[in-house]
Each structure stands twice: as C-alpha cells, then as structure tokens.
Amino acid sequence: MKKLLQNLNLIDISTKALSLIFFIYIFKSDFPHRRFSIFFLLIIIFSLFFNQKILSKIVFWVSSIIILSIDLTTNWYRVANHHFVLFFCCLLFFFVLRQPKHKQQDYLQNNGRSILLVLLFFASIQKLLSPTFIDGSFVGQYLTSGGFFQLILSKIESCQNYIASNRTIITEFNSQVPNATESIQLNGNPKIISTISLIYTYSILIFESLVFYVFLRVKNLNIRHYFLIGLIIAVFISRLECGFLSLLCFLGITQCNEKQSNFKLIYIFLITLFSALIVLNVGFH
C-alpha cells in the first residue's frame, strides 16, 4: 500500500479522495436536482472502478462545480459550512487541471494550504468574536444538555441520566410563553461545570489558533501534519462531524510531499472511515 502510494502522484491521490468525498456528498444530499445527481453518481462510480482518467478531465470538475453552485445558490443560508469548503476544493481542482503538468502539484499544495489557513483563521475569529463562546456558556450549554463527546458519554449511565434530567427541565420550561425575567435552575455543580466549560472553551480556541499558526509559520511539514491530525482527532472525539473532517483530511493530503506516504495513508484511512460512517448514518454529513 505504501509503495502504491509512493508511485501515485499527489494529483492522482487528491483527485480520488475528493471525488470520493463528492460522491458521498451527492449520495447523502437531498437537494432538488436528484435525477441529475444520480446520473452524476453513476459517472463517478464508473470512473472510480473502470476509467479513472475521467476524474482528471476538466469537464468532470466543471460539472461538479455546477452541481455544487446550484446547491449553494439555492440554499446559501441553509447548507453547512463544509459544503462551501467542498465547493472551493472542486473549484481549486478545476484551476489545478488548467495548469501545465509540472506546475500542478505546487499549485495544489499552495492553494490547499491557503484554503486551510482561511478556514482556520475564520473558525478562530468567529469564536473570539462570539460573546457566548468566550464566556464559556456555549460549551456549558452542550455539557449540561448534551451534544459533545457523545461517543464517550453515551457509555456512561450517570452522564446520560444527568443530561436527560436537564433536557426534561429545559423542555418543560420552553413549553411556557417566554419571559425574559424568568429562569430555571439546571442540575449540576456550577463550579465544576463552569471550570470544565472555560478550560474546554480556551483549549479549543488555543488549539485551533495554534494549528493556524503552524500552517502559517512552521516550515517543518511533519509538524504541520501532526497538528492537523491532532485537530481531526479532537473534533472527531468531541463531535462526529464526518463530512467536515473528511474535507480536512483531503486538505491534509494536498500538503503531503513524495516522502510522506505515511501521512497520505493516514488521511486516506480517515476519509474511508468517515465516508463509511456517513453512509451508515453515524454522525453528521
């Protein structure tokens, strides 16, 4: 496998990884142009198994950009942020394939890194500018009424009961006509919850900013990959955002050089894992 990856160039691996992510996206999306999507789905299956050259044709990526553009323009304020990332990745591929062969890899690496930087920059800035994130109440809300670490917490009965009791209190309170002066008391020790919330809040912010800094300044490519894989694992443990994570893995692949087959292997394994989870309806797509 490692040898096979060494023989495949970066453009080939990235093309396959992105077309797989795009395939899963079409497979799971419920946007209105279903018939057209099924036709496109068949083309991807055919290309992946029988004629992989189709994936390196500009017309393939133009079609994918058209499909994604229709989806984005009709659902601009409804689709998740990673659908925008997928659109930009497909758009990037269109530009990559327009470059002369010897320039394609550099073009993909530079732009892949820039996409990652824009994403991490805005993810950090949004958190910094959000008052409910900075004061820890956003994380506090998820900790008291569920949402984070579902993989782990679902195995611990006391945590399940704690979250369920708070959800019952909230549901009952929310069924009444709202009044800004009224409030209810949630279960739990405020000191413990607020300490955990603040530690977790600032850990997220610091780690995300650190990954941004590493990709911006640190020249050592291995360190960049360690941080990116760390971020992917941290997000996966906190929340099963499989669609977003597979795109982070794709961007990780674009940052690999010829010698970094191990990292390519890790990213491909992760994309396969996340794709399988999405197909099995585990997590978010």
Binding site: W76, Y77, R78, V79, A80, N81, F84, L119, F122, A123, Q126, K127, L129, S130, T132, F133, F138, Q141, N174, V177, P178, I204, R239, E241, F244
Partner: peptide, 21 residues
C-alpha cells in the same frame, strides 16, 4: 454564525434551539 460560509460552527448555540413565538 453557523451558516453562510463563515466557518463559525460551534462558536455559538445552534439556531435550531431558538424559538419562534
């Protein structure tokens, strides 16, 4: 912050928890 391509997911409570009266 969750929508519109600004990458502000998980920076504030999800809007599905909002209520319309």
């Amino acid at each position: 912050r969750w929508k519109g391509g600004g990458y502000g997911m998980y920076s504030e409570i999800h809007y599905s928890y909002y209520e319309v009266w």
